[in-house]
């Protein structure tokens, strides 16, 4: 086995007739932050559970931290499951102490660490509360502490940003960066594209159980040629004229707010160069601003799903969300 944090080779997993994951190959080097994306039901949680040795693949091999399975390196792994797994009636600090002991920490240091961590995520006051008394976001933070308290080398976070408000999202981002800074490998699955873009060095996308993307964020966005221009005309009334410019396939007004300012998104047809079309537009119409639209991870995500036929996602829904994509951030 290689020394990478996680290696998967030809992994396949079925539940009855349904193929959850098929022929999955993946290498996550040590010390990177790897984002794991894909539509609902793509097989993300199944993959993560297989890495964790909670489920076992029908075919293929999985190596974790140089060992044959996560079983053998359990104490070096931190895991935050998708759904909140807390004992409802247990007190927060007692619960974390229990988990820390289960992960091999001794009693005294474990309790000191729990206290320190609760302070760090500003839950110091809640140590004596029962888990069920916490809000969803607070529970998520407790859960995060449970996954990192034993200072694991590999941290696997399933849907870590769900249910968090902007303040706590930022806190979570800082915590992940902190762990990254300490040299740990982090794999997290998410639907929050903004956070993924901010954090990831490596992005890994699956759809219908198959790998769609795997590489650094730069490599991936480069594969997706920008074919859209953002144009702001001096006079908002000039915007309709843009569609008569050669090479322009479609003009969409995007959001209501953009339209009233004269900001439109211009799609360039397959045959033309975006730069040519840009100079054409500048020659014909007075513009305040014109730029090639930056490709976001969200655009890539939607494009991949669209090309793959959408699976069980309605194509009309995809087209609509794509045009307004620059306005919506974060979780989609």
């Amino acid at each position: 086995m290689s020394d990478a944090a996680v290696v998967m080779k030809g992994v396949r997993k079925t539940f009855g007739d349904k193929v959850a994951v098929d022929d999955l190959n993946l290498v996550v080097p040590r010390g990177v932050v790897c984002g794991f994306i894909g539509p609902n039901g793509a097989g993300k949680t199944t993959t993560i559970r297989m890495i964790m040795s909670i489920l076992f693949p029908d075919q293929g091999e999985i190596g974790v931290l140089g060992k044959r399975s996560a079983m053998e390196s359990r104490d070096l792994i931190g895991y935050l499951p998708e759904e909140r797994g807390l004992y409802r009636k247990m007190k927060v600090a007692v619960f974390l102490g229990y988990i820390a002991r289960l992960k091999g920490l001794d009693g005294g240091p474990a309790d000191a660490k729990v206290k320190q961590w609760l302070e760090r995520v500003s839950l110091g006051d809640s140590a004596r509360k029962k888990c069920e008394e916490l809000s969803k976001g607070m529970q998520q933070k407790v859960q995060f502490i449970a996954s990192v308290i034993h200072e694991p080398e590999l941290i696997i976070l399933d849907e870590v940003f769900s249910g968090l408000d902007p303040v706590n999202r930022r806190l979570m981002r800082e915590l992940i960066e902190e762990q990254h800074g300490a040299g740990r490998t982090i794999i997290f699955s998410t639907h929050a594209m903004f956070e993924a873009e901010q954090l990831c060095e490596q992005v890994f996308m699956i759809h219908n159980g198959r790998k769609m993307l795997d590489g650094s964020l730069r490599e991936i966005t480069a594969q997706f040629n920008p074919r859209s221009l953002i144009v702001e005309t001096m006079n908002p009334d000039d915007a309709p004229q843009l569609s008569s410019v050669p090479g322009v396939a479609r003009v969409s007004t995007g959001s209501q707010r953009g339209a009233s300012l004269g900001v439109v998104e211009v799609s360039v047809d397959e045959a033309s160069q975006p730069a040519r079309v840009m100079s054409e537009i500048v020659n014909r119409i007075d513009v305040r601003r014109i730029e090639i639209k930056r490709v976001t991870l969200e655009d890539v995500f939607l494009e991949v799903v669209r090309r793959a036929g959408g699976g069980d996602i309605d194509p009309a829904l995809l087209a609509r969300s794509s045009s307004g994509s620059s306005e919506s951030g974060g979780e989609s």
């Binding site: 792994i77 895991y79 499951p81 797994g85 409802r88 988990i99 859960q143």
Partner: peptide
């Protein structure tokens, strides 16, 4: 109860 509130996964990440 543990199965339904998913504590099980946390426990199984620590013990067999």
């Amino acid at each position: 109860e543990e199965k339904s509130n998913r504590v099980m996964e946390v426990l199984l990440s620590a013990v067999s």
